[in-house]
């Protein structure tokens, strides 16, 4: 398959190999060291690293600067960009800025509502929504134009991703919604954490029936559970997160000190099972503040070594 950007992620996906991406949350300070440290942990075991954009609406070192830090140490960043905090002028400006630093991947998101974060009194922007951001990046890249119509002499060549949550409601529009993201221009999809495999399989079935898996790359999200408490917390408190009761029981069934290991094992089993699903193009492993475990998961899931791209 022909590639259109310099993205390593695009090259691996289009070569037909399973891709592995991971995620880093930037620190709440001006010190870039935590990002670099996390990047080093992931360096040999993933193809690209997402940098979150003020996730859960908590103010952090910005995604773009963090991506640059990773790029400078030779990693392949995925710039996460939410439409909550910037209007179309700022979004397009940051896209150009990112491309000028050789950042080749972008994940277009709406962003958590600010009421969840550390500044619930803030205004939100939502000039565009996440689908319209996908359209914007594609328009800038493919037409070489700003939304306003002016020409971009050197367009940003970015591989464009989006999120999908097969577990949110209403389920009936979750496949049509993916089709809509494809129509908007999404090229790869990273999904919400998969714990409910039956539901994910059902969603994938619908995805395949419409041939969507042939037109974009789907990377299911994997987040290892660290404890039974975390499993219960996610189930109860995170909207759109589907943690089946049996998984909570399984976590509770092992000694507290062994629950983290059990969580890793579950993550690996999940990957093994997802590998069997037609249309799965890779994995997005989000080990939240537990990045040191990613290499083990990747190795034990048989996803190591990672492909080498010239």
């Amino acid at each position: 398959m022909e590639t259109v950007t310099d993205s390593k992620l695009e090259k691996i996906l289009k070569s037909g190999q399973l891709a592995v991406t991971s995620e880093c949350g930037p620190p709440r300070s001006a010190d870039p060291e935590p990002i670099i440290k996390k990047g080093e942990m992931l360096r040999n075991h993933v193809d690209a690293v997402n940098i979150t954009d003020n996730q859960t609406s908590v103010t952090r070192l910005c995604s773009l600067a963090s991506c640059i830090h990773l790029k400078l140490i030779g990693l392949e960043p995925v710039l996460q960009m939410v439409v909550r905090d910037r209007n179309r002028i700022a979004l397009q400006s940051d896209i150009l800025g990112a491309a000028s630093h050789g950042i080749n991947n972008i994940l277009c998101l709406s962003g958590d509502h600010q009421s969840f974060g550390d500044h619930p009194q803030s205004q939100n922007v939502f000039d565009l929504d996440s689908m319209q951001l996908i359209q914007t990046v594609r328009y800038m890249r493919d037409e070489g134009k700003f939304l306003g119509g002016d020409e971009i002499k050197v367009p940003p060549k970015m591989f464009v991703g989006a999120a999908a949550n097969p577990f949110a409601d209403p389920f009936s529009i979750r496949v049509p919604r993916l089709a809509k993201k494809l129509a908007a221009g999404a090229e790869f999809i990273q999904t919400q954490c998969v714990y409910n495999l039956e539901k994910f399989e059902l969603w994938m079935k619908g995805v395949r029936e419409r041939g969507l898996d042939k037109k974009l790359f789907i990377l299911p999200g994997i987040t290892p559970l660290r404890s039974a408490g975390m499993a219960k917390f996610l189930r109860k408190n995170v909207p759109g997160m589907d943690v089946p009761e049996e998984l909570i029981k399984r976590m509770e069934g092992v000694d507290k000190k062994d629950q983290a290991d059990e969580g890793i094992t579950i993550a690996i089993e999940t990957i093994q099972r997802l590998k069997e699903i037609d249309g799965v193009a890779g994995f997005h492993i989000m080990a939240i503040e537990w990045e040191q475990k990613v290499p083990e998961i990747v190795e034990r899931a048989g996803l190591y070594p990672r492909p080498v791209i010239e």
């Binding site: 509502h113 996440s130 319209q132 999120a163 949550n165 949110a168 919400q192 909207p239 759109g240």
Partner: peptide, 20 residues
């Protein structure tokens, strides 16, 4: 819509209710 999403719903829609 709390996020005035023009092509929704977002991933936070649960049982017909808003994530906020």
């Amino acid at each position: 819509c709390a996020k005035r999403v023009m092509n929704g719903p977002c991933g936070g829609s649960t049982d017909g209710k808003c994530e906020i």
